[in-house]
Design a protein around this nucleic acid. Structure first.
Lengths: 151, 151
DNA sequence: TGAGATTTGATCGCGCGCGATATAAGACTG
DNA sequence: CAGTCTTATATCGCGCGCGATCAAATCTCA
């Protein structure tokens, strides 16, 4: 016997990269939840707000391209953010197919209240700067290849 | 001016490690979908099957510990797998609180049909072995720290 | 200009995740 | 051995993700 596995053995869960990502994603959610509860945001809603804080007036399509989400996910989510008073959805007057997303003053102000979150999360992660960048780079490579071969 | 950011600027989405993981997770889903469609499995259902192929007779609790999922997620998922004929759910005769998960012959046989999937996905990822292990190690570190500080 | 193709967003259905709660079986304690 | 506590699973409600479909606005080009 050269190894402990039978020839037809399936790998264990721990060997799957996809599972590492899947479960680490869940772990992130748990960390974010208490921080975001104060702002009455879910985690995907927070990502949308981060994108809009980086620049308002985007269309749903443009936002979706950043987040890799389409209107079937975004429309209801954006309506909830609108209902909470954080943004408004306005049909573009030039091209009425498009909906532009504009932060309300309250949505702008939320940025200040969210300010400690990134540092707070970074502290919980506790990776060395170098490892952090390595991780970002490798994840970026994986994502790029997967999205390319999925097209 | 020392930098291009205002003092109160929020980081961009691309700087968030959580976002890299979030979107890479979605990309994995897209890759798995066509492969799993043939087996009539969703991605979380596939993870459950992988765990059971590694050894059945587990309780729901034990399975949940591996996947970081609790009964509110697993019970309906397991019922769907049972309805498809891949496993059976049996109350433990010693301790009737527990439900033990046992693969049916069809569930066992599915392993053969799923056999090419890991290699197929690995090919799509296309990372060097060393990078793959680095990624696994760093994700493991992050997950461990996050789950510890969330407890 | 007018018929068909394309683009944008909205809607629907279903399967996760997960917090909160319920129920039932088992363990513990006085 | 009765009352209480704990544990394992189930149920409910809500918010994503996403494939499929639809409606309206815009574009194309004969």
């Amino acid at each position: 016997m050269l190894g402990k596995k039978a020839a037809d053995a399936f790998p264990g869960l721990d060997e799957f990269l996809c599972f590492s990502i899947y479960s680490t994603g869940h772990a992130f959610n748990q960390i974010y939840r208490p921080l975001l509860d104060k702002l009455e945001l879910t985690y995907p809603q927070y990502l949308v707000m981060v994108s809009l804080w980086g620049g308002d007036g985007q269309t749903v399509k443009e936002l979706g391209a950043q987040l890799s989400l389409d209107s079937s996910t975004l429309t209801p989510l954006l309506k909830r953010l609108e209902a909470r008073g954080y943004l408004s959805r306005r049909r573009d007057t030039q091209d009425e197919r498009q909906v532009r997303l504009v932060l309300t003053p309250e949505g702008q102000a939320l940025q200040q209240r969210a300010r400690e979150i990134p540092a707070c999360v970074a502290r919980e992660i506790g990776l060395k700067k170098e490892d952090y960048h390595t991780l970002q780079r490798l994840l970026g490579e994986v994502r790029e290849r997967l999205t390319k071969s999925a097209e």
